[in-house]
Structures are given as C-alpha cells and as structure tokens.
Amino acid sequence: MVPLSWYLLLSAVLFAIGVGGVLLRRNLIVVFMAIELMLNAVNLSFVAFARQLGAEDGQVIVFFVLAVAAAEAGVGLAIFIQLFRARETLNADEVTTLRW
C-alpha cells in the first residue's frame, strides 16, 4: 500500500510543473493548460486526503473543482477567441493592456 506522502509529493511536483508553465510560457492557451494541470494536482491531494481520512468530503470538493474548471475553460477560451479576433495574437506579452 502506497502511503499518503507519496501522493502528496507527486501532487507537489505536478503543481510545480504547472507553476513553471504559467510563468514561462507566453502562449495564453498553453498557460491555461498549465493552470488545468495545477488544478488537477490539487485534486489528487484532495482525493488522497479523503482516502486517508476515510471520508468522502475531499471527493465532493473535487467535484466542485471540476465544475469550476469547466466553467473557467469555457469562459476563458471564449475570451481568447474574441482577443484573437481583435488583436490577431495570443501572446501574453502583446496583450498587457485591458483595452482593445
């Protein structure tokens, strides 16, 4: 049986990879994917803790995180489409002002 700490370590490594992706990548869609990666790393922690405590509350919270991630992806990608129509770019460095 694998102990809880292994899952937490894996989760931390995946979260760190996600942080690195958000900070280094300039393509907004890839930045978004890195954010999804971070959300998933946290989900793994939640599920592992739920299993450790023998309670299902952690799994319920993962359910909510999934819903928020889906909503975020839908709205975020719609914003990217509008941004691309207006500016012809998805480079984060070229979109630093909050106006067209």
Partner: peptide, 11 residues
C-alpha cells in the same frame, strides 16, 4: 489511475 487506486470511482 491514481483516483482508481484511491477508490474514488466517480471522480
């Protein structure tokens, strides 16, 4: 796969 190992089948 880890979710299966942690018995979170719906997740």
């Amino acid at each position: 796969c880890f979710f299966v190992a942690l018995e979170a089948y719906l997740i």
